[in-house]
Design a protein around this nucleic acid. Structure first.
Lengths: 193, 193
DNA sequence: AAAGAACAATAACATTTGTTTACGTTTTCA
DNA sequence: TGAAAACGTAAACAAATGTTATTGTTCTTT
């Protein structure tokens, strides 16, 4: 059954070398968890104590603004991480919610586990740095998009960052990701066809 | 004169332990550079080959959108870094410009130097990870602000992220950071007093 | 299968933000 | 020091986006 950790093994190997002994050590700490569609995994006020690596399904990370409106920060599709990294690392209360948009299978990474990896893997710290850097780059691109693209342009490029997302999730979540109202998104789409 | 590297020493010590031998090694690789007010340090299309640590002055990081409008991405005040980290690390062409808004003194960090630090400092990789994480958190907060705050709210909180910035730089740069027109910022401010 | 909830589209109207132009002040620099 | 450029404010109008209400469809759940 260790076969099923293949996706995260591939991801690690994308960043650093890891030998068989180290990988066995990693695997011994990993576990699966399943979430049902619409289930809320993390809520505001809690401390995010796990990183989720999505094997199958979709997680949505969002927060709620002063008016009570949900703002979708990120979608985590297959083979990407979902967490509030800040809450996770600093053990502070999170502002975010994480919700499964489909029945979803994840691999769980805990904080203790991560620190063991940093301490015991030859390239542990390096792996952490490279992943943090890549997520930093992703944020950078996201901000660039927010500054330079119209909502419609961002809508049209969503299929690049999130393959097939437009057919996988309800449209009002897309609107909340674009930071516009569902009504306005519907209106913008009308202009296209 | 090694005294003058004090600010970056403090910053490193904020993240990791570094012994005297290691610090001497670091210092031997660091150097100063001066930029004149309005000078452009990095331009689109170039490869960003240095990280700038601002000792005194202000650097502005911006890009230009399809319409030719400048969008200010970030201000680097004293004791913070300025670079296009993505261009720097991957040696790809940058989309950004970096400009000095005042006569500015920086400490220069090159890529070769950084890799030597990663390789030779006990906590080199860890330092890199922690700094990447902190900048990642900063991006996260920035995005949260873009989603949840009105331009006026963001204007009012700029003095927190960037102390005294509102009196240090021309207002149209502030507007471009807020992603609104200078005319509109002027109008919003009128509503306040 | 039926009932209710969730969802998407549409229209009418309100609010926010952008655009253009003008004017007066401050800053820069030759 | 004087001219030119840069800068901030203002007003009028245009475009983009939000709000509310309505309707019909699709999805959930019993």
């Amino acid at each position: 059954m260790s076969q099923e950790f293949g996706s995260i093994y591939e991801l690690i190997r994308h960043y650093v070398e890891i030998d068989d002994v180290e990988w066995e050590y990693c695997k011994s700490m990993l576990s699966f968890k399943q979430f049902k569609k619409k289930e809320i995994i993390l809520s505001k006020g809690e401390i995010c104590s796990e990183i989720y690596f999505v094997v199958k399904g979709i997680l949505r990370i969002y927060f709620v603004d002063q008016n009570g409106d949900e703002k979708t920060f990120h979608f985590s599709l297959e083979n990407t991480f979902a967490t509030d990294y800040q809450s996770f690392l600093k053990e502070i209360h999170t502002d975010f919610y994480i919700q499964a948009l489909e029945n979803t299978t994840v691999i769980i990474i805990t904080n203790e586990m991560l620190n063991m990896l940093y301490a015991n893997l030859k390239n542990g710290e390096r792996l952490g740095r490279l992943i943090a850097e890549d997520y930093f780059f992703m944020m950078n691109e996201k901000i660039k998009g927010l500054y330079t693209q119209t909502p419609l342009q961002r809508y049209n490029s969503m299929n690049v960052a999130y393959p097939r997302i437009l057919t996988r999730v309800p449209q009002h979540y897309i609107a909340s990701y674009l930071n516009i109202t569902p009504v306005h998104l519907s209106r913008l789409k009308r202009g296209i066809e």
